[in-house]
Design a protein around this nucleic acid. Structure first.
Lengths: 177, 177
DNA sequence: TACGATTATGCAACTTGTTGCGCAAAGGAG
DNA sequence: CTCCTTTGCGCAACAAGTTGCATAATCGTA
């Protein structure tokens, strides 16, 4: 399960509270492994129970900030998971199911939906490219860690670009017939 | 929920039993919306209850083939879902989490894992390309439905190619530093 | 001080996806 | 015919992800 390890990674980068973690997720690691704040809180509770992380503050009082940090056990767990082999994610998108459905139905037009997705992917692409420019300027030399982080951002860029150009050419193909 | 509609699509293409559906899923629609046979059976049960599909055979006897076909209500449901707007899938891959984890840990090498993923994506790419060549030969003219199906296959090809070239260039970047 | 909006935390219920197993029919080998 | 394997079907339990709401602190402001 990757959520545990995504949280460990994020907490190692900077210890913080659950809410801050959720916010950071929304604009960094969460691009590549999404999670809602409820998932995060639940996971934090489990991880605390497993001795991977430690909180300053008691779990009794609601609405009270609890600051989390990674314990040695958590770091070990992350390192061992990190060295394991993981599954490759196959493609999975409801737009493609819709297209197959439209093919068999024969009466529904999905090109509008394809155009909409093209725009959405374009918007996400711009966000990723902005991160690349801001956080990884070309002239600066980079540490090994930064090289890895940059590669991750570029995976997002490649992914969105791929959808974008596929949408464009598929629409062209479908349009000309 | 797309599984219902993926099943409806597949059953419209050809009515069949649960097991055959699961098999067809493994080499066609399931490339783009994976499902285990248990998910499929559960969903078939629900869909039968909702009057979307009909089975020949009783649900009482275990181990007995039940042949499913789509009812008018099922076709309507599919058409209406198909005309709806759907979410865009953000990227989500544990390899990227591993890379971020490796960046913060500093002590784990993930390039082997990246190489492994490169090979895996290459294998899937070859499967998709084989489908493109076999089912959609270049010289033949195609119906609108076939154009759509081809576009779907090409989405898979674009996706795998994108991962492949990203792996290659990221490894090159990481290697030269 | 009191009030309302915001932020942080969490429970509960539900849906979706996964894993492991068990039972029944069919079909071949001894 | 009996045994064994394969195939089809499905339950049960669990893990992961989602949605909606409840509660507590905080903070600005009237």
């Amino acid at each position: 399960m990757s959520l545990t390890h995504a949280i460990l990674t994020s907490l190692l980068e900077k210890p913080c509270t659950g809410a801050e973690l959720a916010r950071r997720f929304d604009k960094s690691l969460g691009f590549f492994w999404q999670a809602t704040h409820q998932q995060i809180y639940r996971e934090l509770g489990k991880m605390e129970g497993d001795g991977l992380i430690k909180a300053h503050g008691l779990p009794t009082a609601r609405g009270q900030q609890r600051h989390f940090e990674v314990l040695a056990g958590g770091r070990d767990e992350l390192a061992s998971w990190c060295a394991q082999e993981g599954e490759m994610r196959p493609i999975r998108d409801s737009l493609l199911v819709r297209m197959r459905a439209a093919a068999v139905l024969g009466s529904v037009d999905v090109t509008d939906e394809m155009r909409r997705h093209m725009v959405l992917h374009g918007q996400v692409l711009e966000r990723y490219q902005a991160i690349e420019w801001q956080d990884f300027p070309a002239e600066k030399s980079r540490s090994a860690a930064e090289e890895l982080q940059l590669a991750v951002v570029r995976a997002g860029i490649a992914y969105e670009k791929s959808w974008l150009t596929w949408c464009r050419s598929a629409l062209a193909e479908l349009g000309e017939s």
